[in-house]
Nucleic acid binder design. Structure first.
Length: 563
RNA sequence: UGGGGAAUAGCCAAGCUGGUAAGGCAUCGGAUUUUGAUUCCGUGAUCCCUGGUUCAAGUCCAGGUUCCCCAGCCA
């Protein structure tokens, strides 16, 4: 469970502390995470999940998982399935409290009847268009519906017949009778029930009227005895209505608290946009590793602990904010550095022949599995005459500050020997093979005479290496805030190079024991995750995130100087 | 001349009843290093503005500015 360092402190916990002090809810703390099953969860939801479940943990309270499934037109079973999977994967437990708003439809209906009986709601025969036109504008009041003063008896009768299916979609609605000139648009006789002859994933054909969010949500919270109903900022305008409904029918009244939703640079965080990316094939499904969905991040190799820690550290406040994606990456690296076993793999192989090493000889070099975790132990890596190193670890004419291999230069091959380059063999101007020698006295990687080398390279034995495909991911968008341009579509900023597939990678044999979704580090390259499509026939790795790369930074600076 | 929110370093974000600006990321230096990784050190703020109260204001008062949300039978 999330056990990371000091306890969180934020304005919501301040409110809870105060409520506890005044004994407002008898010492109880009960939250809920209420997703609508109309899409996959993303990291913005993770923030809410960590907040709600985190508060429950901190205060030894409870947190429910509740599906807010009041709109059968948009909701699907597949989304329910994925949401359950994602919340569980993140590491949270709702015990026996998995609920559906649709489980409360009967009760919500009864409460609506009560609202009508109290003269606080009426059936409106106006068309959607008429209702819209008479709502007024932000600066001018709306007009009362001609049906507003129907008798309670008539309202009861027509509402009953609405439920019985006597009318078609949109013919009538139940409206709260509040104030058509209220400065808050939400209070201008909001719709409580609409007619929708649609099959519901949970209740099937039982209902042809469905409650609206404002009516349903507070009742759901009330029925579940929620103490603090935490939602995002855009619902702040709805709080007066949340309160009004619960007050009118005089039921248990939780407190709604709003916080700012999460935004991260170079991505989008709206279900609508994510769905569009998926539906239009800009990515390969909801779990595409380039997406900020929970399932995408899982496939990318992000760990639940890293995501939880990220959510904890970004804080909770009421300011609209945009977190640098670098901070997310930092949190991922931080966790993976401590937990990911290390391997050697070569993405762009360059052949190396050790001229003074016999062709029939193979040595098993001992390698540390995780320098950050001694208990991870060691493994054997085969070394032989023909090896592969990374193409970019050799330069025929090395620039300043390039410490790696070059003609005449000696470097260390990790966990093996000091290796000296004698000659680069070229074909059509391209280096295709390196002829090198090994210093037999440096076995294991240290020279008895104390001489040093400037760098250490990773390598694999050509004969023993396994072939693999490696997928490198870059930012999905080229713009910091792709959704923030009023006169441009977010899709205009899609990065055409967000996915690079390398198919001739060579990996040390020890990876054969890995399972799908295992998270590892290829030394000097980054963190990687075994793709679920990977199998013994074809190994596939997704790059989660690269290691911090000081050399790349130096290169960039050098390039800028020359141009 | 609608209503509701919010403004603290490039980015998040503490700062409770006023006492002289935490922390993290990023950046840039440096040390250690068989991953140019990790780790470790060091590096940045007249707290949206203008007045006022006070010995003392990010914190209180007044006025202003900017940004976000609201006119779905979506949530």
């Amino acid at each position: 469970m999330p056990s990371e360092e000091a306890e969180a402190h934020d304005f919501i916990r301040d409110i809870i502390n105060e409520d506890l002090r005044t004994n407002k809810y008898g010492g109880r703390v009960h939250t809920r995470f209420p997703p609508e099953p109309n899409g996959y969860l993303h990291i913005g939801h993770a923030k809410s999940i960590c907040l709600n479940f985190g508060i429950a943990e901190d205060y030894k309270g409870k947190c429910n998982l509740r599906f807010d499934d009041t709109n059968p037109a948009k909701e699907e079973e597949e989304y329910v399935r994925s949401i359950i999977e994602d919340v569980r994967w993140l590491g949270f437990d709702w015990e026996d409290r998995l609920f559906f708003a649709s489980d409360y439809f009967d009760q919500m209906y009864d409460y609506a009847v009560e609202l009508v009986k109290r003269g606080k709601a009426y059936v409106d025969d106006s068309t959607a268009d008429e209702i819209s036109r008479t709502r007024g504008t932000l600066t001018s009041p709306g007009q009362k519906s001609p049906y507003r003063d129907r008798s309670i008896e008539e309202n009861l009768d027509v509402f009953t017949r609405m439920r019985a299916g006597e009318f078609g979609d949109g013919e009538k609605v139940l409206r709260a009778k509040i104030d058509m000139s209220h400065p808050n648009m939400n209070m201008r006789d909001p719709i409580v029930y609409r007619i929708l002859h649609a099959s519901h994933h949970n209740t099937g054909e039982k209902w042809c009227i469905y409650p609206m969010y404002d009516w349903a949500h507070g009742l759901e919270d009330s029925i579940e005895n929620i103490t603090h109903s935490i939602c995002t900022l855009e619902f702040e305008n709805h709080r007066p209505l949340y309160d009004w409904f619960l007050d009118q029918i005089e039921v248990y009244h939780p407190q709604q608290i709003e916080f700012a939703r999460l935004n991260i640079t170079y991505t989008v965080m709206s279900k609508r946009m994510l769905k569009q990316l998926v539906d239009e094939g800009h990515v390969n499904g909801w779990d595409d590793p380039r997406l900020p969905t929970i399932s995408g991040m899982r496939r990318r190799g992000y760990s639940p602990a890293a995501i939880r820690n990220f959510c904890k550290r970004i804080g909770v406040a009421k300011v609209n904010s945009m977190v640098d994606f670098e901070f997310l990456e930092y949190c991922i690296r931080e966790d993976l550095n401590k937990t990911a076993p290390r391997f050697m793999g070569v993405l762009q192989p360059l052949k190396v022949v050790i001229e003074n090493y016999p062709d029939d000889k193979v040595e098993e070099m001992e390698a540390v599995n995780n320098p950050e975790d001694p208990s991870a132990g060691t493994r054997k890596v085969p070394f032989s005459r023909e090896l592969c190193i990374e193409e970019e670890d050799f330069m025929e004419e090395p620039p300043k500050k390039f410490y790696r291999l070059a003609p005449g230069r000696e470097v260390r091959f990790r966990y093996a020997y000091f290796v000296k380059c004698k000659e680069a063999i070229k074909q059509n101007g391209k280096v295709v093979e390196l002829r090198c020698t090994v210093d037999p006295d440096t076995r294991g990687g240290n020279a008895p005479d104390g001489r040093k080398v400037k760098s250490t390279l990773h390598w694999v034995s050509a004969r023993h290496a396994m072939d693999a495909e490696v997928r490198l991911y870059d930012k999905l968008f080229t713009e910091k805030d792709p959704a923030g341009h009023k006169d441009a579509d977010f899709k205009d900023f899609i990065n055409p190079n967000s996915l690079e597939v390398l198919t001739s990678c060579k990996i040390e044999p020890a990876v054969k024991n890995l399972k799908p979704l295992d998270r590892i580090q290829f030394e000097r390259l980054g963190y990687f995750c075994v793709d679920p499509d990977s199998n013994s026939e074809k190994l596939i790795f997704n790059r989660t995130v690269g290691l911090r790369d000081t050399w790349a930074k130096i290169q960039k600076q050098q390039q800028q100087k020359t141009t």
